[in-house]
C-alpha cells in the first residue's frame, strides 16, 4: 500500500536505546573480527527511503560511510532488503564496490529516530519525495515539522546537512519555511547545491525522481546546514 499512518501502533522493532542497537547484522563487513565491535557508525540516513534508489547510488560515492534507509511500509522494506542482498551477491569479491555499506530498516523515524542514533551521530539526512499530506488537518503527519526538526537537529552533527526534494511545490514551501524558521538550521544556497554531488544523485537516483522525470514534472530541492547549538544560559 502507498501510505502508512505514522501515528498508529505498528508492530515495530526498535532498540531500547542507541547503545542497544545491533548494527552488526545490517553491516557484517564492518564488524571487527577480533572484538566483534563495529568499526563504523551509520552517518547517513535516508528517511522514508522508499525503493532504495538513492542509497544504491550513494553507496559507491561514500564508501567510507554507513548508509541506512528507514521505511515504514513493510513490503517496500522487504523489497529493498532483497535488492541489497542481490546487489551484494552480484558484486561478491568485487574490488570496486560491493554495497556492504548500505542497508534498510523498517522503522517509524518520526517516533523512534533517537532510539537508533546518538546525539550528533549523523552527517547527512535525506528526505526525498515525502508524503505530502495535503490536508491541513494532517500537517502534523508531515515528516518536516518544527517539533520534529529539533529531534533531527539532535541526531545530526553540527555542520551536517539536511537534504529535501519534492515534486509538490506547496510541500517544498512548507519544508523551506519550517527549516528556515528553525534556529538550528540555515539554508544552503544554489551555488552550494550546484557543486554538491548528493544533490545531483538525489535529483536523478530515486524512483520517485525518475517518475517525476518521465512526467516532466518539477523537482524542488532545498538543503540546510545544521548550525551549532547556542550557548544556553
Amino acid at each position: 500500500r502507498a501510505h502508512s499512518n505514522p501515528f498508529s501502533d505498528h508492530q515495530l522493532e526498535y532498540p531500547e536505546s542507541p547503545d542497544a542497537m545491533d548494527w552488526a547484522e545490517l553491516y557484517p563487513a564492518y564488524v571487527d573480527g577480533a572484538t566483534g565491535k563495529m568499526t563504523q557508525e551509520v552517518t547517513i540516513a535516508d528517511i522514508g527511503c522508499g525503493f532504495g534508489g538513492l542509497m544504491v547510488d550513494l553507496s559507491p560515492e561514500f564508501p567510507k560511510d554507513l548508509i541506512l534507509g528507514m521505511e515504514i511500509r513493510v513490503q517496500v522494506t522487504n523489497y529493498v532488503e532483497d535488492r541489497i542482498i542481490a546487489l551484494r551477491n552480484n558484486n561478491l569479491g568485487s574490488t570496486e564496490h560491493n554495497y556492504q555499506n548500505i542497508n534498510v530498516l523498517r522503522a517509524n523515524a518520526m517516533k523512534f529516530l533517537p532510539n537508533f542514533f546518538k546525539r550528533g551521530q549523523l552527517s547527512k539526512m535525506f528526505f526525498c519525495f515525502p508524503d505530502p499530506h495535503f490536508k491541513q488537518r494532517k500537517h502534523k503527519a508531515r515528516i518536516i515539522t518544527n517539533t520534529l526538526l529539533s529531534e533531527y537537529a539532535y541526531v545530526l552533527r553540527e555542520g551536517g546537512t539536511v537534504y529535501t526534494i519534492t515534486d509538490v511545490e506547496d510541500l517544498h514551501h512548507w519544508m523551506v519555511k519550517h527549516l528556515t524558521e528553525h534556529p538550528l538550521f540555515e539554508r544552503l544556497d544554489g551555488e552550494w547545491e550546484a557543486q554538491d554531488k548528493c544533490v545531483s544523485i538525489m535529483r536523478n537516483a530515486t524512483e520517485e525522481g525518475k517518475k517525476v522525470e518521465r512526467k516532466r514534472g518539477d523537482k524542488f530541492v532545498a538543503c540546510f546546514k545544521r548550525l551549532p547549538s547556542p550557548q544556553l544560559s
Binding site: E16, S17, A20, P114, N115, R119, N146, L149, S150, E151, A153, Y154, H182, P183, L184, S229, P230, L232
Partner: peptide, 15 residues
C-alpha cells in the same frame, strides 16, 4: 529539552 530554547534537545531517558 532546554527551556526556553526548547528546540535544543538535551537528551532522552531510555529504559
Amino acid at each position: 529539552s532546554h527551556y526556553p530554547e526548547s528546540y535544543v534537545v538535551s537528551k532522552w531517558l531510555f529504559g
